[in-house]
Design a protein around this nucleic acid. Structure first.
Lengths: 216, 216, 216, 216
DNA sequence: GATGAATGAGGATTCATTCAT
DNA sequence: AATGAATGAATCCTCATTCAT
């Protein structure tokens, strides 16, 4: 999907090559930015990985900064879409709460670099992301908050703990992806493999069940 | 040497001026490294924050790299100590499990930049940290694993989920600190303030109770 | 070829589109070169002003350098023609001396960027212009010199002052055009407008009259 | 004077070396900027001429731009001083009119690159100079205007010709310096040599005498 | 211990130019 | 004739580091 639809139909190949190159640049940049952060990534690295010379990058992006913005946008865009759909879905959101986690996991499976990308921003105060994320994350927190409050586990958590619970879920979901490269280095296991992700999804489902379940 | 053993002598005796300077450099560097990562932090930034000129830094540290190592060492050292104590403590570790979280939280309260520092390493595969952390984190995982297995909640979790559970706890503990600067930007609330940390500790205690509790 | 001999054919027949484009490029380049000099002008600027993309310029000119040469040639050509005519005209050149100024002013009115263009060359030692100008300017100086010597004001000026007088006239004529953009910025008045040029021409006539007049 | 007072007295050599270097950079930059303009001058050229590496320039100036500004300021400063003195001198300015020319010539003899420097700015509309020169040149024109109007030659020139006359004098004075490198290329003679300058000053004095003299 | 000055290495960016389409 | 894409060379500038003072 990143590399353009490539809908393969023969005729009218309009500017295809350029867009493919642009997508390849985005792919390379995404990996590097998510791994090394903005400052730690050089255009030389990006160009090398794509198999281009540095100035060629400028045929597709105006600057390192705008390349970074494009990477971020491409990654966040779909998530934003899914989440905003979810936001508006229905009032009985609690019932879907388990499904949300799965949908997000499915999404991140497609773009496993995204959490690391976002985390880099997060670590530095998110100067770049804040405007973008404020409108994205804020309603989610609000929604989640209200969801928990209305759910069966409401009485289990003090009101002031609910944000912490939401944050905790966020950390567990996102953390799984962010720790992956390090975990691989440490244990040899790749947490992002299909199988590992399935396991984690199951785990998350259970976690939700336990934490949001009614206390008997 | 940079970490300044605080050579105890007369307690009122002011440390050598040089050691004070070194500590101030470490402080500044810690903040910057944890916020911007290694590549994103320049010696100019560090020097400016300390109120020195760049070459003066070299009177206290051999290189940017060794400054970074010193920051890491100073931060991680105490944690390592506490944890290794804990590792060797006794076999009835489960009983202490709740206390561990609190001790770690108390530790991180002293050095709230540490998680972000470590996370930066983590994100990039931890080339720098791996050797250091392998010996630190690995036993913890092992220990935790065995702890959970021996605990009352063992039957609740499938065997293959236990590492995920441990990781999850790690993410929740660490994530709280790493998201702090961003959360402040977003909501204005400082998650690292004494009060917020106390609340989070309470929350964690409950979390542990729920997740590790015996299922009735 | 760039200067487009205007291959005469049917006078009404529109020049080839290519030639029109070439002329538009020359126009844009002339303005930019005269304002910013060779180094300060980029092909991007030129292309933008013409409404083309950079590579298209190469359909009309071999290189930035040859474009510059073409601009220079197109500008200087006519002046050279007029002057060489004048050079050969007659021996009684003095009588025409007033007329020369007017003819030159008329010429420069058509191509007011030319003096700035030449001046840029002049400032840098004229590496590019010297060969072209040596054969152009030198005879003029010679001629002017001889003209003044033979004229009625000869006794007023010491022999060694005559070159300075000629140079002075040159500076006044050329300077009027070169200072124009700055003068406009400063005072709002455009020295190159028809009216202002007419005034300057009258002023020059008077100047010539005074400086070359017989002293009684 | 550019290279610092160097008042040679032995003691207290405070930061002498750095200022000397800075002055040498200014010297080199002045020559190059005046010859090739801002865009045509590279820091590599400057550094080479000074015998430094490029980054060293940044120990003395913040940027190419600020180096340029410093060159301009150093050059224009003294002229500004002299002229502002002159501006306020006395009401009987006409009597001094001849002397002004000589004083300006003396000044430019010290800093013969200045006119070319200024001319470069002038050619491009003087974006950089305008603010600086507006306050410098404008009063001069005003003053000169009033001077001529009050002088004995007033009736010779139409009122609207007076600014042209002032401009003409400006062009002759400045032009002599700006044409010098080209003239040397052309004729081998150096117009900036002491002797040549003396001759030009005499010529200017005569010119003033003629143009501002009473018509009999 | 602190710093001004110098510098090799490298980083982002621009520019003129080429080539295939 | 026009242009998207690619690129070698160069430009300004920053950075970590060294050294003499």
């Amino acid at each position: 999907m990143p590399t353009a639809p490539v809908t393969a139909r023969a005729p009218a190949a309009p500017r295809r090559k350029g867009q493919i190159t642009a997508a390849r640049i985005l792919d390379a940049a995404e990996e590097l930015f998510s791994e090394r952060g903005y400052a730690g990534t050089t255009l030389r690295d990006v160009a090398e990985r794509v198999g281009l010379r540095i100035p060629s990058l400028y045929n597709h992006f105006d600057s390192k900064d705008s390349l970074y913005a494009a990477v971020l946008e491409r990654g966040i865009g779909p998530v934003r879409t899914v989440l905003s759909e979810y936001m508006e879905e229905g009032r009985d959101a609690y019932r879907d709460s388990a499904r949300v986690v799965e949908r997000i996991m499915a999404l991140l499976e497609q773009r496993p670099n995204l959490p690391r990308l976002v985390l880099h921003e997060t670590l530095s105060g998110g100067q770049r992301l804040t405007p973008m994320l404020r409108e994205w994350i804020e309603p989610i927190f609000a929604r989640a908050h209200e969801m928990v409050e209305a759910g069966p586990a409401a009485h289990r958590w003090e009101k002031e703990q609910i944000p912490l619970l939401v944050l905790a879920m966020y950390h567990v979901v996102v953390g799984h992806f962010t720790i992956a490269p390090f975990y691989r280095e440490l244990s040899g296991e790749d947490l992002i493999q299909k199988q590992a992700l399935a396991r984690q999804t199951r785990f998350l489902r259970k976690l939700v069940a336990i934490l949001f379940a009614e206390e008997e």
